[in-house]
Simulated assay, not measured.
Amino acid sequence: MVWIPSGSCELGPVDGFWIDACPVTNGEFAAFAAETGYRTLARREPDLAPWAAYPAGRADHPVTDVAWVDAVAYAAWAGKALPTEAEWVCAAHDAPEAPGAGAGTRPVAAGAPNGYGLYDMFGNVSEWTADWHRASGPLPMKVIRGGAGRLARPYPVHGYGDDLGFRCVVRTG
């Protein structure tokens, strides 16, 4: 984990916090699932493509096809939490675009880190945050950040996709 000091960013001030240097990987999530018996929403779907959950040979790629509830379950198991949108934005400061953005996943930390030492803030996968999207309407939506875009996007809490993962934080206060 990497320390992000207290400060302000475009979304306002944040207290200092620890954040995973990389998105959670298939290998890390598979260890959680094996220990707890947890099944993601995607793995409960009978017609899910067999490659979609913890693909063989891709343990070092970010886990994908995880809904917000799946990310929260992993974070709780790990003694962590999902970052707020403001925490995520502050941590992403000066992050370079990852190589191959928009072309499927690649191993985490394959590109250059930002000034804090965080990898894959942009490119590789979009990431869940803890914040509700303000204009979600009747369908509950959370904010996702990163991936191929630099803007916040709404995503249904029970939705998942092959370009959607997460990383975790630990708050000290």
Results as ranks from 00 to 15, higher is better:
M1F: 12
M1K: 11
I4C: 02
P5L: 08
S6D: 14
S8E: 15
C9P: 00
E10S: 15
G12F: 04
P13F: 05
P13Y: 01
P13Q: 11
D15C: 07
W18Q: 11
W18T: 05
D20G: 10
A21T: 04
C22I: 11
P23Q: 15
N26Y: 05
F29N: 03
F29K: 05
F29T: 05
A30I: 00
A31W: 06
A31Q: 14
F32D: 10
F32Q: 08
A33F: 02
A34W: 02
G37V: 06
Y38N: 09
Y38M: 08
L41E: 13
R43C: 10
A49R: 12
A49N: 13
P50G: 02
A56D: 15
A56M: 07
G57W: 10
A59P: 02
A59S: 15
D60R: 13
H61S: 04
H61L: 03
V63E: 00
D65I: 06
W68P: 04
W68T: 07
V69M: 10
V72E: 06
A73Y: 12
Y74T: 07
Y74W: 15
A75F: 07
A75R: 01
A75I: 03
P83I: 03
T84A: 01
A86K: 08
A86N: 14
E87H: 01
E87G: 02
V89S: 04
V89A: 09
C90I: 01
D94G: 12
A95V: 03
P96K: 10
P96I: 05
G100L: 00
G100A: 04
G102T: 02
A103T: 14
G104A: 09
G104F: 03
R106H: 15
R106V: 12
A109F: 01
A112M: 11
A112G: 05
P113C: 02
G117K: 04
G117E: 02
L118H: 04
Y119K: 00
Y119H: 11
D120G: 08
D120K: 09
M121R: 05
M121L: 15
F122H: 11
F122N: 01
S126T: 11
S126C: 13
S126E: 09
E127D: 05
W132F: 05
P138L: 09
L139N: 10
P140V: 11
P140H: 10
P140Y: 13
M141P: 02
K142C: 12
V143Q: 08
R145K: 11
A148S: 15
A148V: 13
G149L: 14
R150Q: 07
A152Q: 13
A152P: 14
R153A: 14
Y155M: 14
V157W: 07
H158F: 13
G159W: 13
D162N: 15
G165A: 10
F166R: 04
C168S: 10
V169K: 10
V169I: 11
V170H: 12
V170C: 12
V170F: 07
V170L: 14
T172W: 11
